[in-house]
Amino acid sequence: MSALLDVQGLSKRYRRGDKEFAALDGVSFSIASGETLALVGPSGSGKSTVARILLRLVEPDGGGARFDGEDLLALRGAALRAIRPKLQMVFQDPLAAFNPRAAVARLIDDPLRIHGIAGRAARPGAIAALLERVGLAPELAGRRVHEISGGQRQRVAIARAIATRPRLIVLDEAVAALDVLVRGDILRLLMELQAEEGIAYLFISHDLGAVRAIAHRIAIMDGGRVVEQGEARAVIAAPASAIGRALVAATPELPKFRETAS
């Protein structure tokens, strides 16, 4: 099976004062259609730099990425705009990512209009259908972003992302700021959408519990390199890298108490 996204040898150096350091140093991985790859690692390991390069917000110093048969990093102008709908993003904090005073309908209308997904007359119906698709009442369309809860906002962000029928969504710490019960609901919603529409996810997180729930495979990053990758449950059960072992050891487990404990 050919990969939907194939990343080879990405590197990126930043200057801090007169010192240079490698944010990414030869990062390679691939994601198949309908697959979830988790990119896991401590703060500063380079996870978000990978996301920014794939979204073409940052130019890498070296390496390449093929997405859906195209040389993603070489695309310019109209060709880049043409591929944008296939590659979407959901951030940690939708309140920071969106204009807080915008109405929910406007946020979902934008991609439909900009990418010509639905004509003017069809858009209100398409917005309502997308809201229902992510488990929100269509009446929410008239509310402003700052008036709805964090979980509802993240559902709106997902509705906006799936509006363009993407092949891949980059989820950058997308459940990290949510309450625990809401986090479970959003993970379930993401898995449902994937099962029904075959969307692939790049799930960027430092939360191995959430990763174990959603990801098929894991790539563990440390210091700008992928130090280990493999099937999610196998890596979590027996991490080979030092940082993988540290992440597993640091993930809190509910203590086991006998039923007779009081």
């Binding site: 625990v180 019960l181 191995l208 509910l254 203590p255 108490f257 404990a261």
Partner: peptide, 25 residues
């Protein structure tokens, strides 16, 4: 006590929080 709450939560809400905990086991 932590042991009692984890092993035998008395409310549905506490039980839901325990179920929502995503561990590695």
């Amino acid at each position: 006590t932590t042991a009692a709450l984890v092993a035998r939560p008395r409310t549905d809400y506490s039980r839901a929080l325990l179920v929502a905990h995503l561990g590695l086991e």
